[in-house]
Simulated scan of single mutants.
Amino acid sequence: MNENVTAPLRARAEIDLAALQANVRSLRAHAPSAAFMAVVKADAYGHGMIPVARAAKAAGAEWLGTATPEEALELRAAGLTGRIMCWLWVPGGPWRAGIEADLDMSVSGMWALREVTAAARESGRTARIQLKADTGLGRNGCLPADWPELVREALAAQAEGLVTVTGLWSHFACADEPGHPSIAAQLDRFREMTGYAEQQGVTPEVRHIANSPGTLTLPGTHFDLVRPGIAMYGISPSPELGTPADFGLRPVMSLKASLALVKHAPGGLGVSYGHHYVTPGPTTLALVPVGYADGIPRHASGTGPVLIGGKRRTVAGRVAMDQFVVDLGGDEPAAGDEAVLFGPGDTGEPTAEDWAVAAGTIAYEIVTRIGSRVPRVYTGGDHGAGREGAGT
């Protein structure tokens, strides 16, 4: 922790950048012949995009990946060099800024190709683009029926010097479900579509389809580059595939808060909105000063786990906007003592996966939703960052 951080914090998300860098190295070992793209979209899954990007690059990531062009441009503005790719565009997006920032920009259809070539003409510079194939996810990407037109027009733009097609790529729908038939079907379709593009004259630097589960469990999907997202943050992409430790990964984020109040309460006391929890007898209650405005799932009301005083406890009643209550069963920690909502699990604290189970969601959402009023405190690693806000 930065030595300048001396005042107690209402809540904090401790980000272990040494763990993140170890995860990058472990993931690289799973795909030693492929380049590595560190996916830092959505504020690095809630971990803080700029410090994480710097740490990932220091650990050997050759590429950075974001969803939106605005995220990618923020990386450039922060001084991040090298290859940065972004893929979620809408009409009227900042194509010219992306060209001038030397981004690799994904193109999934003819409207996007038209806009990026117009921006290239205006700027007098060649745009780097990657063509995305919809191989069966049914989301972004060009469907097989439209692929020949997109390839043809991209090659024509390349012949004019307006674009360079640097990559061909796609995304899995069910790589986190072992043996799902769509995995092999998508892989076959990807080979067909990339093969067609190459036959027509596209010479991509990289072909890529492997996400976190692909990187960890499907070596045949590695091609020229892998794009780990959630696994880089030490969270298993699917508990069915294995725990983080099974893959040599360590959770990066620990969420902690300082108790705001501990008080004696009588039996029969309704707790929090709706009185969905009523104390069964005389007890002690602790107030944890974080709530759904901080990203604590309201769906985990009555089920969310938390470690206080070395014991696992459960949210008592509803999670409110700024706080929730825990029944301590007579124990008496002091106001200001630490509550650990989740972490690596080393000392019995819950993990993000435990919260995901409690809320009926996935661990991706648990870490990504932690809000901007929870400071990120960076420890370890090669990062050069101290206490920073979530959006930095």
Rank of each mutant, 00 (worst) to 15 (best):
residue 196 Y to R: 05
residue 196 Y to N: 01
residue 197 A to S: 07
residue 197 A to G: 09
residue 197 A to I: 01
residue 198 E to L: 01
residue 198 E to H: 00
residue 199 Q to P: 00
residue 199 Q to A: 12
residue 199 Q to M: 01
residue 199 Q to L: 09
residue 200 Q to I: 00
residue 200 Q to A: 13
residue 201 G to P: 08
residue 201 G to K: 02
residue 201 G to V: 08
residue 201 G to M: 08
residue 202 V to A: 05
residue 204 P to V: 09
residue 204 P to L: 06
residue 204 P to I: 01
residue 206 V to W: 08
residue 207 R to V: 08
residue 207 R to M: 00
residue 207 R to A: 06
residue 208 H to V: 04
residue 208 H to D: 01
residue 209 I to K: 00
residue 209 I to N: 00
residue 209 I to L: 15
residue 210 A to M: 05
residue 210 A to L: 01
residue 210 A to H: 01
residue 211 N to I: 00
residue 211 N to H: 11
residue 212 S to D: 08
residue 212 S to F: 05
residue 212 S to N: 08
residue 213 P to Q: 05
residue 215 T to L: 03
residue 215 T to P: 01
residue 216 L to E: 09
residue 216 L to T: 10
residue 218 L to I: 15
residue 218 L to K: 06
residue 218 L to N: 05
residue 218 L to V: 02
residue 219 P to I: 02
residue 219 P to G: 07
residue 220 G to N: 13
residue 221 T to H: 00
residue 222 H to C: 11
residue 223 F to A: 02
residue 224 D to L: 06
residue 225 L to E: 07
residue 225 L to I: 08
residue 226 V to M: 07
residue 226 V to D: 06
residue 227 R to M: 14
residue 227 R to P: 05
residue 228 P to S: 06
residue 228 P to Y: 06
residue 228 P to T: 09
residue 228 P to K: 06
residue 228 P to W: 07
residue 229 G to I: 09
residue 230 I to S: 10
residue 231 A to E: 08
residue 232 M to Q: 15
residue 232 M to Y: 07
residue 232 M to A: 15
residue 233 Y to I: 07
residue 233 Y to E: 02
residue 233 Y to L: 14
residue 234 G to W: 13
residue 234 G to L: 11
residue 234 G to H: 09
residue 235 I to A: 01
residue 235 I to M: 14
residue 236 S to I: 07
residue 237 P to L: 10
residue 237 P to D: 03
residue 239 P to L: 13
residue 241 L to H: 02
residue 241 L to I: 13
residue 241 L to F: 04
residue 241 L to S: 12
residue 243 T to R: 12
residue 243 T to F: 09
residue 246 D to R: 07
residue 246 D to E: 15
residue 247 F to A: 09
residue 248 G to R: 03
residue 250 R to V: 15
residue 251 P to S: 04
residue 252 V to M: 04
residue 252 V to W: 03
residue 253 M to R: 06
residue 253 M to K: 04
residue 254 S to V: 01
residue 254 S to C: 02
residue 255 L to V: 11
residue 255 L to E: 02
residue 255 L to N: 01
residue 257 A to F: 04
residue 259 L to T: 05
residue 259 L to Q: 07
residue 261 L to S: 13
residue 262 V to L: 06
residue 263 K to D: 11
residue 264 H to L: 03
residue 266 P to T: 05
residue 266 P to W: 00
residue 267 G to E: 13
residue 268 G to I: 13
residue 268 G to W: 11
residue 268 G to Y: 11
residue 268 G to L: 12
residue 268 G to R: 09
residue 269 L to E: 14
residue 269 L to F: 09
residue 270 G to L: 10
residue 270 G to D: 14
residue 270 G to K: 14
residue 271 V to Y: 06
residue 271 V to A: 11
residue 271 V to N: 03
residue 271 V to I: 15
residue 272 S to H: 12
residue 273 Y to R: 13
residue 274 G to H: 12
residue 276 H to I: 10
residue 276 H to N: 14
residue 277 Y to I: 07
residue 277 Y to S: 10
residue 279 T to A: 11
residue 279 T to P: 05
residue 281 G to V: 05
residue 281 G to S: 14
residue 282 P to T: 05
residue 282 P to R: 04
residue 283 T to A: 11
residue 283 T to G: 07
